[in-house]
Design a protein around this nucleic acid. Structure first.
Length: 257
DNA sequence: ATGCCGTGGAAACCACGA
């Protein structure tokens, strides 16, 4: 069972390359972030034509998340991260696909530091920690996949010293992410490739992709039951080099059935 | 080493992203 996450940076602008990627790699589950469309304008028919069931939570201009499931309908559990009923951002959606619980998330960027945006990011991480504490104990496999906007370690950024004061790499951010991992979650890609340089995002400017000046910020966290089934994982790096690309590349894992 | 690019939405610039 292949489970992938892809920040598309606009579902409309990315539809041609999203379709191409789905046809080429045929993931069983695809978690999408940054739809940048109102719920009612989501291109549902185009995805169903490819054989995917889909649930999504849109928002005008910003954010937006979706879960695609090949050949079946995702069974929605929730479409908001618990802990703040006032939070209007569409950043979390959760479903069961076959026997796997899938959380699809788009964590706040948080820049500049300090700012209300950074405070929001830290609050969001804390809400995720509280919710993840419930999920990690599940006997079912659980995968928390998405754009975390967190650079976990110095290995995950091309030039760490340039990023120490950025919201993605600030010590508060890394520590908050670390408190989630401490519950027992495993960063699947780092687990499979402990020493490799792996990026999932490259800026549009400064020729970042060609220079491989990237960040690893898209992650799939697994609970113990999911980890036992983990067989492989990687980044579909070439997608970042296609025409009209997102600034993120898809990341995927393979779980044994 | 700075939103330099990309996207959406409203207006012919601005917010936002990482």
């Amino acid at each position: 069972m292949r489970i992938a996450t892809f920040n598309v940076n606009s579902i409309h602008a990315r539809l041609p390359s999203l379709v191409r990627w789905l046809q080429q790699t045929s993931p069983d589950v695809a978690c999408l972030q940054e739809l940048k469309t109102p719920t009612e304008k989501f291109p549902e028919a185009a995805l169903r034509e490819l054989g995917y069931g889909v649930i999504w939570h849109g928002q005008k201009s910003y954010n937006g998340v979706a879960i695609l499931a090949k050949g079946c309908e995702p069974t929605e559990i929730r479409r908001a991260l618990p802990g703040d009923p006032e939070d209007q951002h569409s950043r979390y959606i959760e479903a069961v696909v076959r026997d796997v619980i899938i959380g699809c998330l788009y964590l706040p960027n948080g820049n500049p530091v300090p700012s209300e945006k950074f405070e929001y990011k830290l609050r969001w991480l804390e809400r995720l920690r509280v919710h993840a504490a419930e999920l990690v104990r599940s006997d079912q496999p659980v995968v928390l996949a998405g754009d975390y906007n967190v650079i976990p370690t110095e290995k995950d950024v091309y030039k760490p010293e340039r990023w120490v004061d950025d919201a993605l790499f600030r010590i508060e951010t890394r520590e908050a992410f670390g408190r989630i991992l401490e519950q027992g979650w495993v960063d699947a890609i780092r687990h499979l490739h402990p020493d490799a340089t792996i990026y999932t995002y490259w800026d549009y400017f400064r020729n970042a992709y060609a220079r491989d000046a990237g960040l690893r910020i898209d992650h799939l966290l697994l609970n113990a039951t999911a980890l036992r089934r983990l067989r492989a994982g990687g980044v579909d790096r070439d997608v970042r080099g296609w025409d009209k690309p997102s600034d993120h590349a898809p990341v995927w894992i393979e779980l044994a059935d």
